[in-house]
Computed example of a mutant assay.
Amino acid sequence: MKYPVFFLLILLSGCEKLQSTPPVQQLPHVAQGSYAAALSDDGHYAAVSSIQDGVALWDLRTNALKYQWQHQDSSDNLVLNLAISHNNSHVLTADQHTYALWNITSGENQGYWQLDAATVRDVAVSNNGEHLLIGKSNGGVQHITLASGRRLEFLGHTERINSVAMSPNGRYALTGGNDYKAHLWDTQSAQIIYSFSHPSRVTKVALDPQGRYAFTADSQDLAQIWDIQSGQLVSKLQFTARQQVFSAVRFSRDGHYLATGAPTRKLALWDVQSGRELQQWQVGVKPDSRPPSAVVHAVAFLSEKQLISESSSGIAEVWEIKDDNK
C-alpha cells in the first residue's frame, strides 16, 4: 500500500532523532510532491504519481522523463498504487477502482480494468506483464493471467488487504491484511503455503525476488523476515520505537541486507540474518513543508554501495552505504 501526501503527519510525534548523512545525489521529479511511487528492483526506473503529471516514468540513469500516462476518464489522477515488474518490462498503476498495464519499451497501454465490488488496496505485476495481483478492500486478492484470461480469487483473508507482493514468475503471492495475518500462497491452486501471524494488522509485505525470504510487518512494533523454503523465522528487525510503520521494503540482490522506508522520512539498512539496523538516513522534504515531513514511497539497491529512494517530496535521492556494513 502506498502512502498519499495527506498521510505525511502520521507518527511524527514519535519520531526518533536521526543522525543522517546527506544524499550523494538528488533527482527532482515533482515540484509539488507525489502521491505514490515505485522503483524498479535495479533502480533504473521510477514511476511517480502526482496530481500535476499523472503517472510519470523516469529513466534514472539519465534522470530523463520517458513517458507520462493518464488513467481513462480520470480528472484527478489519484493513482495511489504502482508496481514495476522485476525485469523492467511493465508498470501496473491503480486508482481506487481502475487498474492499467503499461509497456515500458513502447509506452503503450496494454489494458484497463474496472473493479466494481471493492476498492484497490495494493498491486503487483510479474515479469513481462503476464500476471497481475490486485489486493482489495473486501479482503479478496485477485490473481489474473492475461494470456488466458484466468482470474483466481484468493479468499484466505477475512478483512481488508493492506499489502501484496508476487514472485517475478507470478507463481507465488504474499499478502497481508487487517486480520493480523500474512499468507504466502500458490497462485495456481490458491493453496496457502505458510501463514505468518502478527499481534496487529499486517501493513507491509515483501518478497525477495530470488525466492529466499519474505518480509511481514504490522502496525505496531513487529517486523519479521522469514525463510520461505522452510517457513522458519530468520530474524526480527531490532528497533526501539514504540510504533514503527514501513512504507517501502527491498531485499538486496545477495540477500544479505534489507532496505526499508517509513512515513517519517526514515530510510534504513538492516542485516537480514540478525535483524540489526546498520545505517539510517532521512529523506529530503519540500522547502515549504511545515512541519518538515515526507513519506518514503520506494527504495532500491543501485549497487552494493548505493541505495536510491523516492519520496512524497517528489525527489529521488541516492545514498552511500558505508563500507563497514559489508
Score class of each variant (00 low, 15 high):
Leu57Gln: 06
Leu57Glu: 06
Leu57Asn: 05
Leu57Val: 08
Trp58Cys: 01
Asp59Phe: 02
Leu60Trp: 09
Leu60His: 01
Arg61Glu: 03
Arg61Gln: 05
Arg61Ile: 11
Thr62Cys: 12
Thr62Tyr: 12
Thr62Asp: 09
Thr62Lys: 11
Thr62Val: 09
Ala64Asp: 13
Ala64Gly: 10
Ala64His: 02
Leu65Trp: 01
Leu65Lys: 01
Leu65Ile: 08
Lys66Cys: 05
Tyr67Lys: 14
Tyr67Pro: 08
Tyr67Gln: 10
Gln68Ala: 04
Gln68Val: 12
Gln68Pro: 12
Trp69Thr: 02
Trp69Tyr: 01
Gln70Lys: 13
Gln70Leu: 02
Gln70Phe: 02
Gln70Tyr: 04
His71Ile: 01
His71Val: 01
Gln72Arg: 12
Asp73Tyr: 09
Ser74Gln: 13
Asp76Glu: 14
Asp76Val: 04
Asn77Pro: 11
Asn77Glu: 12
Asn77Asp: 02
Asn77Trp: 15
Leu78Asp: 05
Leu78Pro: 14
Leu78Arg: 06
Val79Glu: 01
Leu80Cys: 09
Asn81Lys: 00
Asn81Met: 02
Asn81Thr: 07
Asn81Leu: 03
Leu82Gly: 00
Leu82Arg: 07
Leu82Tyr: 14
Leu82Phe: 12
Ala83Met: 09
Ala83Pro: 06
Ala83Asp: 13
Ala83Leu: 11
Ala83Arg: 15
Ile84Thr: 11
Ile84His: 07
Ser85Thr: 02
His86Arg: 07
His86Ser: 10
His86Leu: 07
His86Glu: 15
Asn87Ile: 08
Asn88Ala: 05
Asn88Val: 00
Ser89Gln: 09
Ser89Ala: 14
His90Val: 14
His90Ile: 10
Val91Ile: 07
Val91Lys: 12
Thr93Trp: 00
Ala94Phe: 06
Asp95Asn: 03
Asp95Tyr: 13
Gln96Asp: 12
Gln96Phe: 05
Gln96His: 11
